[in-house]
Simulated assay, not measured.
Amino acid sequence: MKKFFSVLLAVGMHVAAYSQQVKMLTHIEGGILSYASLSEKIGYSFKGAGTWPLNPTVSMGVGLGYEKYFLKEQDVTSLQGIPLFAQGKYILTPDRGKSLYSALDAGYSFNLDKTEDHEKIKGGILLAPQLGYLWKLSNQRDYFSIALGYKYQQYKKDISPMNGGGYGSFTDITYNLHRLSLMVGISF
Results as ranks from 00 to 15, higher is better:
residue 53 P to F: 05
residue 109 S to Q: 10
residue 84 L to I: 13
residue 119 E to K: 15
residue 15 V to N: 07
residue 84 L to R: 05
residue 169 S to D: 01
residue 149 G to N: 08
residue 187 S to I: 06
residue 174 T to V: 11
residue 142 D to C: 08
residue 24 M to L: 15
residue 177 L to N: 11
residue 47 K to G: 09
residue 121 I to G: 01
residue 67 E to H: 10
residue 90 Y to L: 13
residue 54 L to W: 09
residue 173 I to N: 06
residue 155 Y to T: 01
residue 36 A to V: 00
residue 159 I to Q: 12
residue 39 S to D: 15
residue 61 G to H: 02
residue 137 L to K: 11
residue 1 M to N: 15
residue 18 Y to L: 12
residue 169 S to K: 11
residue 145 S to R: 12
residue 90 Y to F: 11
residue 131 L to S: 00
residue 131 L to Q: 05
residue 42 I to N: 11
residue 107 G to T: 09
residue 145 S to M: 11
residue 6 S to K: 06
residue 111 N to V: 02
residue 119 E to Y: 06
residue 108 Y to D: 01
residue 38 L to G: 08
residue 146 I to K: 04
residue 12 G to P: 08
residue 25 L to A: 14
residue 180 L to I: 13
residue 66 Y to F: 13
residue 34 S to F: 07
residue 131 L to W: 06
residue 31 G to H: 03
residue 45 S to F: 06
residue 32 I to N: 00
residue 57 T to N: 14
residue 35 Y to K: 07
residue 97 G to I: 08
residue 64 L to T: 00
residue 48 G to R: 00
residue 73 E to L: 05
residue 89 K to F: 03
residue 111 N to W: 01
residue 146 I to Y: 01
residue 1 M to E: 13
residue 163 N to K: 12
residue 98 K to H: 10
residue 123 G to P: 05
residue 52 W to R: 14
residue 1 M to A: 14
residue 119 E to T: 14
residue 47 K to C: 07
residue 6 S to W: 02
residue 98 K to G: 11
residue 107 G to I: 08
residue 169 S to P: 01
residue 164 G to K: 04
residue 40 E to H: 12
residue 153 Q to Y: 02
residue 156 K to L: 08
residue 182 L to F: 06
residue 64 L to N: 02
residue 93 T to L: 03
residue 149 G to K: 05
